[in-house]
């Protein structure tokens, strides 16, 4: 467990402050009752407070942990719930750049799917997306399986959602 929550705390405080700032644009009280700005204002304030709690508790824990590591090498015993050991380290949202690139590649494929739906129609886009993603995840799968799954998913989703359930999915230039 990473006990360094400094960046997270700061992030939460920023969200809290932005919320407060935005909520000031709506009226706080209207006659004798809370207005539209009341609830968001308090939510923003609570977030800011929680952000500070995160900062303070993180700083305290980092300090105790450092002290222990200097004085003794006895490792803290994790309780049965969290088996991970507390470590000090810059908390980053990603475990590494290769992960990040994989995540973004996946997101880009998804975004392409949605963009293609309006143009090529849902059925073709779904087939292409499925083929592309399987190939991306496991380039060694035989092309028969890749193509087969792609076509099967596209046809099944067409039959199920468009024919049976009458969902008006984007049709695109080919009309399906």
């Amino acid at each position: 467990m990473n006990v360094n929550r400094l960046p997270e705390g700061i992030f939460v405080i920023i969200i809290g402050l932005v919320t407060i700032w935005l909520s000031l644009g709506y009226s706080y009280m209207e006659r004798f009752t809370p207005g539209p700005g009341f609830f968001p204002f308090w939510l923003g304030l609570l977030l800011t407070v929680l952000g500070f709690i995160m900062l303070v508790s993180s700083a305290a824990q980092v300090r105790t942990l450092r002290r222990q590591q200097v004085t003794s090498d006895s490792r803290p015993v994790g309780n049965e719930v969290t088996k991970e050991e507390p470590v000090i380290g810059a908390s980053t949202p990603f475990t590494g750049w290769s992960d990040l690139s994989k995540v973004f590649a996946a997101l880009i494929i998804l975004v392409l799917l949605v963009l293609a739906m309006d143009w090529l129609g849902t059925t073709i886009s779904v087939a292409l997306f499925t083929i592309l993603l399987i190939w991306f995840l496991n380039p060694r799968v035989s092309w028969k399986i890749v193509l087969g799954t792609g076509v099967l998913v596209a046809v099944a989703s067409y039959l199920l959602f468009v024919v049976t359930l009458e969902v008006p999915l984007p049709k695109g230039i080919f009309g399906f």
């Binding site: 099944a156 039959l159 199920l160 049976t164």
Partner: peptide, 20 residues
């Protein structure tokens, strides 16, 4: 594994035909 996948998809289609 592929056979498993195909069989589960076939069942999906069966459910579908009930609906149809």
């Amino acid at each position: 594994q592929v056979r498993k996948l195909v069989s589960s998809l076939v069942v999906m289609l069966l459910l579908l035909s009930v609906l149809a």
